[in-house]
C-alpha cells in the first residue's frame, strides 16, 4: 500500500506492529502513549488478535514474557514511569533471551514528573532497563514515518538476537500527526525459533524458557555469551543519519524529536554561512560510534541536543575519546528547545 494516510506517531506504531504480524498487545494506560492502547483495543478484536488492559504495568510485561516464550510477536507500550515499573519484567525477558517489543513514549521525570515530552530515559534505555547485566536494542525514531518503519525492524532485530527491543520515542512524536506510507506486512519466522515453547507433540524434548540458574558457573557463562552477542550487535546494527557533514566544522548530535528541531537550526546556520552538520543516532543502543569517531578528526566541536540534562553526552565523549569539546543544548521538564535556541549554541 503506497497511499499516504495521516497518523499520530502512537497510531503509526500500533498499525505498524499489526502489519508486522503482532497479534498480542498487553498494556496499561498512561499519557502520552495511550493512543497505542486505544488503537489496539479497537483493531485487535477485528483481526483475531488479543488486546488486554492488564491490572498494572508489571502484569502487562509478564504477559509479554508469556507470549514471547511461544515465539510470537508481542508488544507492550508505556511512558517513562510505567517503563520503570516494567523494568523487572524486561530484565526477565533479557535473562530468558526472549524477543519482544517495548515502546517508551517518554514524558518528563523523575518521579511522577509530567505528561509533556522528554528524552530523560536515555540512560535507562541504553544502559539496560532493569537489574542485571543486559542491554535492549534501542531505536529512536524522529518522525511518524520512522515510527512505523522502525517498528517492524525492531521486531526483526529482537528475533535475530533473541532479546527485547525498545522503541524510544517521546510525547511530541507520539502525539503529532504526519503523513505516513504504512510498511508492507511481515511476520516472525525469518530467524530460528526452535527454542519456542509451542508444544512438543511428543516429538521432541521440552523447551524451557527460564532466567533462573542454580549453577553460578552456568549463569556466568550465559552472561558472557550474551555479551559476545552484544559485541556483534555493536558491529552490525548501529543506524544513523548524517546531514551536511561533508564540510562540517561543528557537529550537532541529536536523536528523536530534538533532531527535527536541530535540523531546522542547522539549515538556518548554513544560510548564515556556518559550516555545521548533524549526526542523528537512529539506534541509541548500539550507539553509532563510527561516524562520530570519524567526525572527531574533522570538526572543532560537538553539540549534544537533548530533552534531558545531557545524558547522551557521555556516549559522545566515549565515541570520540574526548578528542573535541561537547557543548550541551538541553531542555527538560516537558520543554522543547526552539530552533533559535539550538542556533544560539551553534553560533557560540
Amino acid at each position: 500500500m503506497s497511499e499516504k494516510v495521516l497518523m499520530k506517531g502512537n497510531e503509526a506504531i500500533a498499525e505498524a506492529a499489526i502489519l508486522a504480524g503482532c497479534r498480542h498487545y498487553f498494556g496499561y494506560p498512561i499519557t502520552p502513549q495511550t493512543e497505542i492502547a486505544a488503537y489496539m483495543a479497537k483493531k485487535m478484536p477485528k483481526i483475531n488478535g488479543t488486546f488486554l488492559q492488564a491490572e498494572s504495568e508489571i502484569a502487562a510485561i509478564n504477559m509479554v514474557y508469556g507470549v514471547a516464550s511461544t515465539g510470537k510477536r508481542v508488544m507492550t507500550s508505556s511512558s517513562s514511569p510505567g517503563i520503570a515499573l516494567k523494568c523487572e519484567g524486561i530484565s526477565y525477558l533479557a535473562g530468558a533471551d526472549l524477543p519482544a517489543l517495548i515502546v517508551n513514549v517518554q514524558r518528563g521525570g523523575p518521579g511522577l514528573g509530567g505528561i509533556q515530552p522528554s528524552q530523560s530515559d536515555y540512560h535507562l534505555a541504553t544502559k539496560g532497563p532493569g537489574h542485571g547485566d543486559f542491554h535492549v536494542l534501542c531505536f529512536a525514531p524522529a518522525s511518524v514515518q520512522e515510527m512505523a518503519d522502525l517498528t517492524a525492524h525492531a521486531f526483526e532485530c529482537a528475533e535475530k538476537y533473541r532479546m527485547p527491543s525498545m522503541l524510544l520515542a517521546d510525547g511530541t512524536l507520539g502525539q503529532m500527526m504526519e503523513p505516513v506510507v504504512l510498511p508492507k506486512p511481515s511476520d516472525a519466522g525469518k530467524y530460528d525459533n526452535s527454542w519456542a515453547v509451542t508444544g512438543t507433540n511428543n516429538e521432541r524434548k521440552h523447551n524451557i524458557i527460564n532466567s533462573l540458574y542454580l549453577s553460578p558457573a552456568e549463569l556466568e557463562k550465559l552472561n558472557f555469551e550474551r555479551y559476545e552477542r552484544y559485541e556483534q550487535i555493536k558491529k552490525d546494527e548501529p543506524m544513523w543519519e548524517e546531514y551536511l557533514m561533508d564540510d562540517a566544522e561543528i557537529c550537532v548530535v541529536s536523536y528523536g524529536i530534538t533532531a527535527r528541531i536541530s535540523r531546522n537550526a542547522v539549515d538556518e546556520a548554513r544560510k548564515q554561512g556556518i559550516k555545521v552538520g548533524m549526526i542523528r543516532p537512529i539506534t541509541v543502543w548500539p550507539f553509532p560510534v563510527e561516524p562520530l569517531k570519524k567526525a572527531a578528526d574533522k570538526v572543532e566541536r560537538f553539540i549534544c541536543v537533548e530533552l534531558n540534562m545531557g545524558q547522551m553526552k557521555d556516549d559522545i565523549e566515549l565515541a570520540i575519546h574526548c578528542k573535541k569539546p561537547v557543548d550541551l543544548c538541553i531542555r527538560t521538564g516537558g520543554m522543547l528547545p526552539s530552533p533559535d535556541e539550538v542556533l544560539a549554541v551553534i553560533k557560540k
Binding site: 499516504k4 494516510v5 495521516l6 497518523m7 497510531e11 488503537y39 479497537k42 503523513p179 504504512l182
Partner: peptide, 9 residues
C-alpha cells in the same frame, strides 16, 4: 471527517 485517517477510511 478526514478520509485520510486510518480508522475512518
Amino acid at each position: 471527517v478526514n478520509f485520510s485517517r486510518p480508522l475512518t477510511r
